[in-house]
Design a binder for these strands. Sequence first.
DNA 1: ATTACTGCCC
Length: 934
Amino acid sequence: MSLRRLFSHNFHLQPQFKLNKPIIFTKSIQALAIITENSSTTTKLNLTHDVEWTPGSISYSKLLSQCCKTQSLNPGLQIHTHLIKLGLNHDPKCRNHLINLYSKCRVFVGARQLLDESPEPDLVSWSALISGYVLNGFGEEAISGFREMHALGIRCNEFTFPSVLKACSMKKDIVGGKQIHGVVVVTGFESDVFVANTLVVVYAKCGEFLDSRRLFDQIPERNIVSWNALFSCYTQGDFFEKAIELFRDMVGSGLRPDEFSLSTIINACTGLRDINEGRKIHGYLMKHGYSSDPFSCNALVDMYSKVGDFEDAKTVFDQIKNPDIVSWNAVIAGCVLHEYNDTALELSLNMRRSGTKLNMFTFSSILKACSGLGLQDLGQQFHAVLIKSNIELDPFLCCGLIDIYSKCGQMEDATRVYNMMPEKELIAFNALLCGHSHNDNDIEALALFVEEYGDGIGFNETTLLAILNAAASLQVVNVTEQIHGLSLRTGFQSDPFVINSLIDSYAKGGSVEKARKVFDESPIADLATFTSLISAYAYSGQGEEAIKLYLKMQDLELKPDSFICSSLLNTSASLSAYEQGKQIHVHTLKFGLLSDTFTANSLVNMYARCGSIDDATRAFSEVPEKGIVSWSAMIGGFAQHGHGKEALSLFDDMLKDGIAPNNVTLVSVLCACNHAGLVTQAKQYFESMEDVFGIKPTQEHYACMIDILGRAGKLHEAMDLVNKMPFEANASVWGALLGAAKTHKNVDLGQIAAQKLMLLDPEKSGTHVLLANIYASAGLWENVADIRRLMKDSKVKKEPGMSWLEVKDRVYTFIVGDRSHSRTKQIYEKLDELMELVGKEGYVPVLEIDLHNVKTSEKELLLSYHSEKLAVAFALIATPTRAPIRVKKNLRVCVDCHTFLKFVSKVVAREIIVRDINRFHHFRDGLCSCGDYW
DNA sequence: ATTACTGCCC
């Protein structure tokens, strides 16, 4: 077997010798010793004594050069062994070769040892050492090597300067670069084209493009490398136009571009997103015989991926005869960019099958593909593969892993990856921050920001968005203010995303005025900023302001989108602003937004929550693609309006349609059973939730079920269920029990429930009132008095009853005994008139028992002026005679008002719809849709 | 003849 063939075989195995860290020399020495002792190895090498250290023939020097070129340590070690045996290792030339070998193969200690053992190390010895450092990315060591050599009085030549200058550009060490530049000038190597080219790169890489250009212009005999170097630097510095301009100058000067020029310029076209220029270069490349240059082809794949059509990228890739690791990585990255994530994974498999090793670039794309496909489990498995394959976790990979772990909610693992990074990168920091924010770890997000910001990691708009999001969730306006200040100081206050997040964060924190201020001071007034502020108003319950802003937006001729309309419909829904909601409906039709399922669902929700179940039904039938949200909205609508049977029948339709319910749907289903008084059916649904639909009952489901049992008088069963709950009962659950205790006049249960409620929600006034009522109905007047005293002392006040009525474009507010309205006199006259009419029909005021020590005549007076009565009286004088009256109330309707409104609906022949805190009451012909069950 | 400058993929 010839030496060459043997080595070419070994070279083939070279990746296993390519390590990321310097190899410790002692290990190499050990290996050397083993090889030396093992004569069979030497025999196998077939090295004979007649091969001498002479240039020209098949010589050791050539073989060692070959080892250096391929960074193949093992064959190099065997040659070293042999040279020792031949006693040639002390020859200065031979020693320099060996220094070169060890340095190139990262055995720096070995290289250094040989240099130190040398009686007279010369420039070549040092050059060999320094070039090895540079080749392997050890810039700092290269520079200090140069300084040491310089201090020994050894002067650089035209070969050494480029090496050490390259080290400066790697480290972006402009100070060192300028010093060495000085030495270059003094020693007269400035006009050497190799040295000059490298100097051009040093200044450009350090950001000194003007100096770099000046040096370039001063090169006496520029070659193609000079040009290539400069426009490569321009491209890397994102000065793509300058790069292309310079390229044209070069072509204009009669120099023909080579494959280096072409691949660089393709890159510049990618950066400029100039596909036309890119296609021209592609054409030139084909015409001038560069179509098989791997670098240029890979650059083309990358360009078409990022700028053009992915099909073109794939076509170029398919034409590459032997795609290398970069070709594969480029096409796979393109897949991910175009969200062909499954294709990306498939191509990675093909890549491996073709015998190409996957590297950190490949895995970075793979992790993104997994994340995009929602295959977080697979992504996690790749973490193990990365570790096993000894692939360095660079910042890109760390980001990918942080993203994967964040999406699984495994923030501890995400944090571990982050902490492992030797140098924290902003992108990784942002990934972790966003992870915390998405997983509702808002406090952790703030803490991380404070810590890392303090450590000087810096920030960008992504950071600010994540922090503002956390501040919004935590409702901490002071944090929002600080971030606002930081944005102002750093120029981010004009970033559209930051503006929108500031608006959102202020609004969620309860300071809609500050949100408004941000909006008013914003240099941008586009759809997104309007959406943010409209949502902010909607969130703060200022529906009128939301509408005003919407009108202003239309003055600016901004066309609303489905987000805005959906938000406005939701505002109308929460305000029960029926007329307003209808107007928005008209707009959604006008702008053709109802094909958007989101908006269509909001419309169903709006009509249902504004009390028009007929409109809701119509809107529901027109939802283009009914999803779980559409069905849930409609089922919930029926349930709230007391149409329990319709709700349940619609639920059946949904199941027949093959749509699986979610926990929201099931709350509505239980609620429907509740309103229809279907206790047995409710129990069946509740008990089968987990088995049939795979949904674990939450607090809400328990509260609803306990309410059902409580209303039906099954107080023991209700209490049993509370005890059986797998978690601590919350305020809604105890509230349901307290309500049941009141209805069924059970003092013991009432006391237990009220005690729990006062602990869980001490500011809630209703608890005290209800308990007082329970005591009163049992004649325990002392206890009633105690509660009243307690309320006074603890400053718990009964929330005043309020009602809202929409007339034309205005919303009118009424409180108990309100006399603030301009038509107060007429309202009270109307109310007296109604009292008389319903009295004749048989209405008797139903007295609230906790008014025990108030005179009966006064009680009647107080009851007469409950806000809903005032609102209805006003509606009768201010709205068209046949239109339904829609009133919204902030508390539950009291028994007296409920009775009164039933009578009114009959005597005035009007439909009265009252939405209270829990549900809708449709009063018609003396009856209520709730069947007196609310 | 022992050392050197420019290009592609996350």
